[in-house]
């Protein structure tokens, strides 16, 4: 898609969020929406990350703490289940790992260049409570 330069955009120009405005998007999941190219959903901030959260389903209790506190709408929750991380939109802030209440944590921050399967196979064990 070709964009107008800053000096070609008219005053009061409108940037559409959706290519199709006939539907009520509040009833649609993100994957079912017809986004316009001008919606930031179509862009990625993956290259901002130095650390990334990795999600391990085993200990997750689907509490949705990570979903509600993620500032970048990058936790995918569907039907009350935590499905995983949307790595196109995650900036690696680390909030989700910080607020995850399980033991061991179900979200842990790792360097961006580690392999997810490797760290998942070495996931920490449940920690005993310190006396």
């Amino acid at each position: 898609m070709e964009y107008k330069g800053w000096d070609q955009v008219e005053v009061g120009a409108v940037v559409p969020s959706f290519a199709d405005t006939s539907c009520d998007i509040v009833d649609l999941k993100q994957e079912d929406r017809n986004y316009a190219q001008t919606n930031s959903y179509t862009a990625s901030v993956a290259d901002w990350r130095v650390f990334k959260p990795v999600f391990s389903k085993d200990s997750c209790i689907d509490c949705q703490n990570c979903w509600v506190f993620c500032p970048d709408t990058a936790i995918v929750a569907r039907d009350k289940n935590m499905l995983g991380i949307d790595y196109d939109h995650c900036k690696g802030c680390g909030i989700c790992a910080e607020v995850c209440p399980t033991n061991p944590k179900s979200l842990i921050m790792f360097s961006e260049n580690v392999d997810n399967d490797t760290v998942l196979s070495q996931w920490p064990e449940k920690k005993k409570k310190e006396k």
């Binding site: 998007i25 959903y41 901030v45 949705q64 979903w67 509600v68 709408t73 009350k80 939109h89 690696g92």
Partner: peptide, 21 residues
């Protein structure tokens, strides 16, 4: 919170606010 998480988000990612804002 579980029920709240079934909301269809209307504020999209890939905005440019600082990580953790």
């Amino acid at each position: 919170l579980k029920q709240f998480s079934t909301s269809n988000d209307r504020f999209e990612g890939a905005h440019l606010l600082c990580p953790g804002c």
